[in-house]
Design a binder for these strands. Structure first.
Length: 403
RNA sequence: GCGUCAGUCGCAUAGUGGCAAUUGCACGAGACUGUAAAUCUCGCGGCCUUUUGGCCUACGGGGGUUCGAGUCCCUCCUGGCGCA
């Protein structure tokens, strides 16, 4: 099948899985490795699309579950699709709602997140699943997932076919198969069960997608699962590779060190001529590792969420502008940054905006953080193209005090 | 001048016999990775301490009743209101 999404590799990282390339979409090319800006509800929080574009963002990712609940995918369709609705002319992606199976289900109220900290549970985690909703707002069965809306408590049913139908209505260039994102604390037995279900859902997604005819304009990516287990990760990559997807996402909730391991296991197997997205990652160093391990694109809410809470990236780390020490700091967030915020505003001013609860604080901080992470990723890409990735990596690790 | 109500940790509040004392804001710090997040967590009289621990100082000032007082009584100060 000829896909509406294609990938051209331009350069490899010697002796590694990573590469530079171009993803071709109906709304333009994405030069990879690339950071994908997250705009869950068809907006990158606190920024206009023009501002997002000026940051050098190449692509925006929105969310199926959220847009289905509000304003409703039919409305997005009636508006002319996501691009027209939100006034973003470049490439777009929609996540399938699979992550919400996790964040509203197993993870809810447990302090478990996309990248878990603390003890790395392998085969001994607790996965005491009940058939009751108790605190959870998502319940999984073979057919699909029942969500309890966080907005009004109503129950909503989402099957793989529903996710496809909704994503067709939204109309992003790239869409994801409906998957189950599992907890890194889940036992192998459960990871296997969930992974196999995700594979069955993947088949249903691709079948529905082809039958709808939307496969001519929208590219469908599968999501590799398997938790922290090499055997499962490899199996997932292999099984999904054999299906006719336009690209792949590496999914699941991680523990830090998995960035070095699980990602590589998967990318060794996934076809090199298709794009690979690392879902929900990451922080600067995670992207560095992800690229080396063979991923092309990365989406992450950290940059914008942190920004809204006063946390901003600086070379080799981050600072919290709400700390008392910045009240009279009349220097830019980062003097080597080329963003609009750093060109015109001081730490003291932005700290004042945060304390005064002025909306502009979120905007200025988001501009900086997004520009930081986009540029960070761009520079990795340029180093690959110039054949200096290894040196560049060394420089980054030195900045972060890791060398 | 008389009467009355009120003064609690920066501000605002809760507390009518066992209280280092509620809640909100402010302040200080932390977290945040396919966004239930402009959110959440912790701290917030002082000094010790390994602690679910100890000591000191505290509810306008002073005095009293009581085993024990922010809470009851007396008095003074300050402020609001009413009558002169």
């Amino acid at each position: 099948m000829s896909q509406p999404i294609s990938f051209t590799k331009t350069k490899d990282i010697p002796d590694a899985l990573g590469r530079a390339g171009i993803i071709h979409t109906q709304h333009g090319d994405i030069e990879t490795p690339a950071f994908v800006t997250v705009g869950t509800k068809a907006t990158v929080k606190s920024l206009t699309p023009e501002q997002v574009k000026d940051l050098g963002a190449q692509v925006v990712l929105a969310n199926t579950y959220h847009l289905y609940l509000e304003p409703g995918d039919e409305i997005v369709k009636e508006a002319g699709g996501l691009h027209a609705f939100m006034n973003w002319k470049g490439p777009t992606i929609t996540d399938s709602g699979g992550f919400q199976v996790f964040s509203l289900g197993e993870a809810l109220g447990k302090g478990v997140s996309k990248v878990a900290t603390g003890e790395a549970v392998t085969d001994a985690g607790d996965v005491a699943r009940t058939d009751e909703f108790t605190n959870k707002r998502a319940k999984i069965d073979e057919e699909g997932v029942t969500f309890v809306s966080h907005k009004d408590g109503k129950k909503h049913r989402m099957t793989p076919e529903d996710s496809m139908r909704i994503q067709h209505n939204i109309g992003a260039d790239i869409m994801f198969a409906f998957d189950e994102c599992t907890s890194p604390h889940a036992k192998k037995e459960y990871q296997k069960e969930a992974m196999e279900r995700t594979h069955r859902w993947a088949e249903r997604c691709i079948a529905y997608h082809k039958e709808s005819g939307q496969d001519k304009t929208q590219g469908l990516f599968a999501v590799v699962q398997g938790g922290r287990f090499e055997e499962l990760r490899k199996e997932s990559a292999k099984v999904l590779s054999e299906m006719d997807f336009a690209g792949f996402g590496v999914g699941g909730s991680f523990v830090k060190e998995d960035m070095d391991t699980a990602v590589g296991w998967v990318n060794e197997i996934l076809p090199a001529d298709k794009p690979r997205h690392l879902l929900g990652i990451g922080e600067p160093l995670d992207i560095l590792k992800g690229v080396e391990q063979g991923c092309d694109t990365f989406d992450c809410v950290a940059a914008t969420r942190m920004a809204r809470n006063g946390g901003v990236y600086i070379d080799g780390g981050k600072i919290n502008l709400l700390n008392a020490q910045f009240k009279k700091d009349f220097t830019p967030i980062m003097d080597t940054c080329d963003c609009y915020t750093c060109a015109h505003y001081t730490r003291a001013y932005i700290a004042h905006l945060f304390r005064a609860k002025e909306m502009l604080a979120a905007t200025l901080a988001s501009i900086h953080n997004l520009r930081f992470i986009i540029r960070f990723t761009d520079e990795i890409r340029e180093s690959i193209k110039e054949g200096t990735f290894t040196e560049h990596k060394k420089e980054i690790l030195q900045k972060y005090g890791l060398l």
